[in-house]
Design a protein around this nucleic acid. Structure first.
Lengths: 233, 233
DNA sequence: CGCTGTGTTGAATGCCGTCAACGTCGGTGG
DNA sequence: CCACCGACGTTGACGGCATTCAACACAGCG
């Protein structure tokens, strides 16, 4: 039996009683996933849903022509792979462990049971979906209206905001991330990302090394992200 | 009192009993909205949620710099403005009647009552949100990986698929739509859309006149939408 | 010690946005 | 009924930004 202290501290479960936490954990099992392993695949029949206890997960979509792009990164404490709550029968994207991860897994059959027994759990899932719809809409807006440099700046700011770890040099993204990854988040090429980061490093906005990115001047980046054609009306 | 035949035929309500339909309609009121009028505004406090009985609604987002883009078109029978189901307190976009519309409106306070009394109604709402998240993700993929001509072709195909009316010349989008509108759906300019449609008209793929677009060769358009760099692996 | 994945940088091409001018349709009011 | 005006649409020319092509550097690992 899993200990309820595993999840009691997570925002999604903050409002639940001890009894409810027990009901939620009954039926869940935990598993380890080494770095770069797939937790589930795109198109695979959705049999389970997940909660990330520890680590970072990359959600990746692959187009018919073989191009990849990163839909989002999942942080500790977040639900993912909740196709069942969206009425989907297969996963629309793959989930890959960005670092070694520990994951809670429920069979989809648990969903209806939990929905009835612990309404707050279902509510958290729906809230998650709503928030992601919101974020995704914002991303469409960015892709449609902003230049590449602004999108990359915005992506970095979001990454450090959501998954940052403070260091003496600034705020570092606390999982390994390549230029290619950043390119796949922003709809550009690794070449362009490399050029931008090089230039920004010279300007003292960002730092980092291989698979590491640190934002040293968030305000400066923010300015860059908002720049260009403010107020055209 | 509104008659339940108003909604009994809609897919969202297909699975409901007569009693349930009655419960749903209690608390709803209907209203007319002339073409080009706003049903709700972006940023406005979300006090109600809506169902489109008749007409077509355009969901429009405006960026801080004043650029607009169209998040989606709502068809007859669809829910919209369901911020309450996403846990939002304000509308993230505006809703504009693309033609004269008839709309059912519920106060947000009805939401919790309905959720408890008619679970199928809440389920329909969540299904709607899930489907829209899905669509929005696909749009991000398109914006990131496809050229402008493919995006415009894809947008037209979706419009005729979802809101098409068969004519002798092909399938016509059954509400007025400008080149500017199409540009705002695909993240480009009205100039580019105009050029593309002109070229496609010569090729016999599309037709139409002022604020009217007809797809005369869906397969041809589909080819165009899939074209270019298939299999790059 | 070579190989693979990652990162950097230069040069050239081209898509598509921008600027500009004009044409056309439809509604409105005299 | 006709003249006018604004919204919508078309087309050409130009230029810039970002992709594409190419070559090289470097690290980690077996």
């Amino acid at each position: 039996m899993l200990d309820r202290s595993l999840i009691a501290g997570l925002p999604a479960f903050a409002a639940m009683s001890d009894d409810e936490l027990g009901l939620v954990l009954r039926g869940a099992r935990s598993s380890r996933h080494p770095r770069n392993s797939e937790i589930f695949s795109q198109g695979q029949e959705a049999a389970s849903f997940f909660l990330l206890l520890s680590g970072h997960v990359r959600v990746v979509q692959t187009t018919p022509s073989g191009e990849q792009l990163i839909a989002r990164y999942i942080n500790e404490g977040e639900l993912f792979g909740i196709a069942v709550a969206m009425g989907r029968e297969s996963y629309p994207a793959a989930a890959v462990a960005a670092v070694d991860c520990i994951v809670l897994t429920w069979a989809n059959s648990e969903w209806t049971r939990l929905q009835a027994a612990v309404p707050a759990f279902a509510a958290a899932a729906y809230q998650t979906i709503g928030a992601r719809l919101q974020e995704t809409q914002e991303r469409v807006v960015e892709m449609a209206t902003e230049q590449v440099d602004q999108r990359v700046a915005q992506a970095l700011l979001r990454l450090v905001e959501r998954s940052g770890r403070k260091t003496d040099a600034g705020v570092e993204i606390d999982f390994p991330i390549t230029r290619q990854n950043i390119a796949e988040m922003t709809g550009t090429t690794l070449h362009t990302v490399s050029r931008l980061l090089s230039a920004w490093q010279v300007d003292g906005l960002v730092g980092g090394s291989r698979q590491k990115v640190t934002v040293t001047d968030p305000q400066g980046l923010q300015l860059l992200a908002e720049n260009r054609r403010q107020r055209s009306d």
